[in-house]
Computed example of a mutant assay.
Amino acid sequence: MITMTQSFKNFWKNYFNFTGTATRSEYWWMALWALIISIIWFIATIIIIIFSLASQDKVNIKFNTFAEFIHNTPSTLIVWCLLSLLILLAFVIPLLSLTVRRYRDSGLNEVSVLLLFALTLISSWITSPNDSQNTFFSIYFSTIGIVSIIELIVTILPTQQLANTKVIGKNKSYQNSEL
């Protein structure tokens, strides 16, 4: 079984590795790392926002242009936001590769991995309409819920659990008969 420290090392070592596999422990230890880092970063952000705004004599809430916003925002806050953006971008690719490797380890075939990955991205990027379209809201939130539940189930499954499942699995016996 992989340790928490080893999962963090593997996370950065496999930055662009979308072809391998990731065990359950590797995936969930990194999920715990991400949660801990996010909580610490969120608390630090709140503290920096409070101290940055408190250090100003006058807080101007109305900004007509982006230039006015930048000019009236404390420089420490701008630097912190840029640093946060860079760190977020640094984490995106290895998080995606870890997720794809976990899907592959559960036994999904390449098409199923791509389909689940695409559904995840699409369901998280759908913009919600105005309040007058309640039907769309229910479909929107149920789609996100269903995709999230499927993701959770796939990431919890043991290694190669779905390998012999028709249509979505790697179907080892079929692959061996082709060779």
Rank of each mutant, 00 (worst) to 15 (best):
residue 2 I to D: 07
residue 3 T to N: 09
residue 7 S to L: 01
residue 9 K to R: 14
residue 9 K to F: 09
residue 12 W to H: 08
residue 15 Y to E: 06
residue 18 F to D: 00
residue 22 A to N: 01
residue 23 T to P: 02
residue 25 S to P: 04
residue 27 Y to R: 04
residue 34 A to H: 07
residue 40 I to S: 09
residue 41 W to S: 05
residue 43 I to M: 12
residue 45 T to Q: 12
residue 46 I to E: 07
residue 49 I to D: 05
residue 50 I to W: 11
residue 52 S to M: 08
residue 56 Q to C: 10
residue 67 A to F: 05
residue 68 E to R: 10
residue 70 I to E: 04
residue 70 I to T: 12
residue 70 I to P: 06
residue 71 H to M: 05
residue 80 W to G: 03
residue 81 C to Q: 09
residue 82 L to G: 15
residue 85 L to P: 07
residue 86 L to T: 11
residue 90 A to S: 13
residue 93 I to E: 05
residue 95 L to H: 13
residue 98 L to F: 05
residue 99 T to H: 08
residue 99 T to W: 06
residue 100 V to I: 15
residue 104 R to W: 05
residue 106 S to T: 11
residue 106 S to G: 10
residue 107 G to W: 01
residue 108 L to N: 01
residue 108 L to F: 02
residue 109 N to E: 00
residue 109 N to P: 02
residue 109 N to F: 04
residue 110 E to V: 12
residue 111 V to H: 05
residue 112 S to Y: 03
residue 114 L to E: 01
residue 115 L to A: 06
residue 121 L to A: 07
residue 127 T to G: 13
residue 129 P to N: 10
residue 129 P to V: 15
residue 134 N to P: 10
residue 135 T to K: 10
residue 136 F to V: 15
residue 136 F to T: 15
residue 140 Y to E: 00
residue 141 F to M: 05
residue 142 S to G: 13
residue 142 S to N: 14
residue 143 T to H: 04
residue 143 T to I: 11
residue 144 I to N: 01
residue 148 S to Q: 13
residue 148 S to A: 15
residue 150 I to Y: 04
residue 150 I to S: 00
residue 154 V to W: 00
residue 155 T to C: 13
residue 156 I to L: 10
residue 158 P to S: 13
residue 159 T to I: 13
residue 166 K to V: 05
residue 166 K to P: 09
residue 169 G to T: 10
residue 172 K to N: 11
residue 173 S to K: 13
residue 174 Y to L: 12
residue 174 Y to F: 13
residue 178 E to S: 14
